[in-house]
Nucleic acid binder design. Sequence first.
DNA 1: GCGATAAGTTACTGACCGGTAACACCCCTG
DNA 2: CAGGGGTGTTACCGGTCAGTAACTTATCGC
Lengths: 201, 201
Amino acid sequence: MSTSSDLSPACAEAAKLPPRERILATARELFYRHGIRAVGVEAVAEAAGTNKMTLYRHFSSKDELVAECMRQFAGEVDGWWENLSREHAGNPRAQLSAWLRDVGTSVADPADRGCALVNAAVELPEKEHPARCVIEQFKIAQRNNLAQLCEAAGAKDANLLADELFLLIEGARVCSQSLGPKGPSSRVVQMGEVLIASHMK
Amino acid sequence: MSTSSDLSPACAEAAKLPPRERILATARELFYRHGIRAVGVEAVAEAAGTNKMTLYRHFSSKDELVAECMRQFAGEVDGWWENLSREHAGNPRAQLSAWLRDVGTSVADPADRGCALVNAAVELPEKEHPARCVIEQFKIAQRNNLAQLCEAAGAKDANLLADELFLLIEGARVCSQSLGPKGPSSRVVQMGEVLIASHMK
DNA sequence: GCGATAAGTTACTGACCGGTAACACCCCTG
DNA sequence: CAGGGGTGTTACCGGTCAGTAACTTATCGC
């Protein structure tokens, strides 16, 4: 099995954060970049400028480390969402467009690997994995946020529009990994806007 | 790392196909069910009712076995497509609907894990992996088939409709893995039909 | 029966996996 | 100064990984 060898970009050696933070930041980067099963705990610890013992003093197992990474990814997206609603306060329609535009730019980045939580769900099919419930809860919340926003923006059928937009962007993010950023994903903003417009009262 | 233990469903011990066929069928099943990195070559060989030596007499490496599995997956989908066009010969619009309906039923199956090639693309980010070009070529061909079909069905902008449908179904298939078959994916047929209708001259 | 070819069997290599034990260290607080 | 908690270091455990060597066995065409 070929395995990528450049696991040592010394990511997030940032100044001197406490080891736990460094480990988490490094793990998120490596898991996202190379896949979860492709990266061993030793590689994570080393890239974080520490060692396996310290890692296991903060996380009871690799699975738990993965779950915590997912929690951070989810939190990051939540904060990102809050930013949007602050920048366009009181204008849900503008929030929708801004969100769509952000998705468009991330999909256009060739280095982008899509949604970390979706990737983890694909890579970890085991129902008992501690990361799975994090992923599911996050995705449910994300869809509900979207529906709420569609409602506030004045959609005729907010739930339907939310589902449409949700599938559209999930498709775009995963599609950019097989067909690249110049494939169908490149038109995600245009498509989303048409969808939104068609639902306005 | 938790690892699923039921890798021995003795799949495709079917009668007595030649070992190569048994290995491929078993590998496809196990890789799809549990993920590629999660399944070792020994487990594949054993579940196929043979052994590692025989496997390596037919495939030069695990990566090559994976690539061949992807080729078979792609071929399967191609054949499936040809069936549709035979069943609804001369009626491209009906082919579109039938294809959409098939996607809908596969997404509704809780055991479904989405598109094997997309999953592999997510799990194997390394550009040099022999499976990647198979995946990319297949996805390009699939999108082009779709565009051709949209054109034949009389779409105003066949390429746009094809991209929309493509993202929609990629989104649905991946979404059913995190939000389950009762999530947004459950409405993929309805959404697709609306999209198609809106593009008709 | 003969030889050739394919398949099964066992044992092995070297590397890596997740996870742990034991111990030295450093720095901060009291 | 004493002490203790967080950290680093090294070595190790049992298990699994991908991949190989050498040998035996079964099958099939001639």
